[in-house]
Simulated scan of single mutants.
Amino acid sequence: MAQQQLIDCIYTDGGCIHNPGPGGWGVVVQFTDGSVLEMGDHQPETTNNRMEMQAAIQALEYVRECDQQEPMRLLTDSKYVIDGITKWIKGWQKKGWKTAAGKPVLNQDLWQRLHQLNHPQISWCHVKGHSGEPGNERADAIANGFARGQKPHLRNNQSASMPKKSTKIKR
């Protein structure tokens, strides 16, 4: 039986042409052995924040399929996603999904899914966008390719022992 590869880190990014407008998300999964898995998809009418969140959701769904218990980093250039999942979400839940101003939380459906998928072994890390970080640049290129309607070539040089993940957004 083949040994399961371990995820080292995951880069996520989302983008939107005109906000709202056509959008895309990209995920780059890097394994400890140097292999890579890339995922992405598009949505015809969305927002940048929803695509940033969708990328993180797809990454965490993949982690769930892998059933990895070892720590890993999830890197995103979205402070909205990081602050939402690490700081704001508990307050929103306590207030019945209302903001401090008493308004409904935007993207509640995605926040609830993200919270459901989040695991203690995930370290949420911010990476500055467009700063030359290869994993972030690649996730950005995937997201923007899909947002522009141009499906990029996605790398999948992982071993057959890992679960296969669809590139489609679950609706």
Rank of each mutant, 00 (worst) to 15 (best):
I122W: 05
Q93P: 00
D8E: 14
K98M: 04
N136Q: 03
P20R: 12
L106C: 12
R50V: 08
N107W: 03
T47V: 02
I10T: 10
K103W: 05
E65V: 05
T12K: 04
V29K: 03
A143Q: 07
K165P: 03
D41H: 12
K94N: 09
I169E: 12
I57G: 00
K164V: 14
H18N: 15
K151Q: 14
P44F: 11
E61G: 13
I169F: 15
K94G: 05
Q93K: 15
I122Q: 01
A2P: 13
M53N: 01
R50M: 11
K94I: 10
M1L: 14
H42T: 11
Q93Y: 06
C16K: 11
P134S: 09
I89M: 04
W88A: 06
R50A: 13
M1Y: 12
T99W: 00
G102Q: 06
R138T: 02
G21T: 04
L154V: 06
A101P: 09
D33L: 07
G34K: 07
P22G: 05
E38Q: 08
P163N: 11
R138H: 05
P104T: 05
G34S: 09
P44D: 13
L75K: 14
Q112F: 07
M39P: 03
N157P: 04
V105A: 04
R113I: 06
K95I: 04
A143N: 08
K90E: 14
H126I: 04
D33P: 01
M53L: 15
I89E: 07
G96E: 03
W92N: 02
R171L: 13
I10C: 03
A56E: 08
I10D: 05
T167K: 11
I17L: 15
A100H: 04
H119N: 10
